[in-house]
C-alpha cells in the first residue's frame, strides 16, 4: 500500500519539461533515459469556413509522469527477481544489485516508467527522490516546476486536496491504482471524441 503520490495539474502544465531535466540532473541520466516524461496530447478537426477562415475544435494538454508508485504495481508482479519491489512505505524501487535487465517491467508498466540503462544493463526509475524526502525536501521535479503544477505528498492529503482522480485521456484504466492524482485540463473531456493522441512520441520514448 503506497503512502506517497504525485499530483499533476494538467490544466496548468505548459509542457516545458523542466521537471524532466531537473530529474535528469538529480539522477545523472544520459539522453534516452527519462525517469520523468511529458506527454503531449492533441487532437482537432480543422475546417475552412465559407468566408475563407479556419475553424477548429482543438484540444491539447500535457501530462507529466514520473513513476506512479502504484498501489497494485504491475512491474513488481512481473519482475522475476524481486529487484522491482515495494518498500514498506509503498515506494516502488529497483534494487540494482539484483536486477537482471530483462526489461519485463518495462513491458508490464502501463505508464512507461521503468527505464532501461544500456550502459549498466539494468532498469532504473523514479524513486520519488527518496533521499530528498528523507531530508524533508521536495522531489527535484516538483521543486522545479515553473508553473507550480506538480505536487508531492501523502496520498490521503493529495486526495483530500485534489480529489481521487487517477486518470486522464488517453491513460489506461487505473487498474494498477497509480498514486498519481490529476487535475484534468478542461479540454480533456473532448479528447476521446476528437480521437486525440500523444503526438510527441519520439520525445517520450526511444523509438526502436
Amino acid at each position: 500500500m503506497s503512502t506517497f503520490g504525485f499530483f499533476c495539474d494538467t490544466s496548468a502544465c505548459s509542457g516545458c519539461k523542466t521537471c524532466q531535466v531537473a530529474c535528469k540532473d538529480k539522477n545523472n541520466l544520459e539522453p534516452g533515459i527519462r525517469f520523468r516524461r511529458v506527454y503531449e496530447v492533441a487532437g482537432a478537426n480543422w475546417n475552412k469556413t465559407e468566408e475563407g477562415a479556419w475553424e477548429h475544435d482543438i484540444v491539447a494538454y500535457n501530462l507529466s509522469i514520473g513513476c506512479n508508485h502504484c498501489e497494485d504495481p504491475a512491474c513488481v508482479k512481473a519482475c522475476p527477481t524481486k529487484a522491482m519491489h515495494a518498500e514498506s512505505d509503498g515506494m516502488i524501487l529497483v534494487d540494482s544489485k539484483i536486477c537482471i535487465g530483462c526489461r519485463y517491467c518495462e513491458w508490464a508498466c502501463p505508464y512507461g516508467s521503468p527505464q532501461y540503462n544500456e550502459q549498466k544493463g539494468i532498469m532504473q526509475k523514479c524513486d520519488f527522490c527518496r533521499d530528498y524526502i528523507l531530508e524533508g525536501k521536495q522531489p527535484a521535479c516538483v521543486a522545479s516546476c515553473p508553473m507550480r503544477a506538480l505536487e508531492f505528498g501523502q496520498i490521503g492529503q493529495l486526495i483530500e486536496k485534489h480529489g481521487d482522480n487517477r486518470t486522464i485521456y488517453p491513460m489506461p484504466d487505473p487498474i494498477t491504482k497509480p498514486a498519481l492524482f490529476i487535475r484534468k485540463h478542461p479540454g480533456a473531456r473532448f479528447a476521446r471524441k476528437l480521437n486525440a493522441s500523444i503526438i510527441n512520441r519520439e520525445e517520450v520514448r526511444n523509438e526502436k
Binding site: 512481473a78 522475476p80 537482471i100 535487465g101 530483462c102 532501461y116
Partner: peptide, 19 residues
C-alpha cells in the same frame, strides 16, 4: 539480459512473475 550475472535470482518470484 542486460545483467546476466544475476540470472539465478530470476527464479525468486514464481509466485507472481510469469517470467
Amino acid at each position: 539480459l542486460g545483467n546476466p550475472a544475476n540470472a539465478p535470482r530470476s527464479l525468486s518470484n514464481i509466485g507472481t512473475s510469469w517470467l
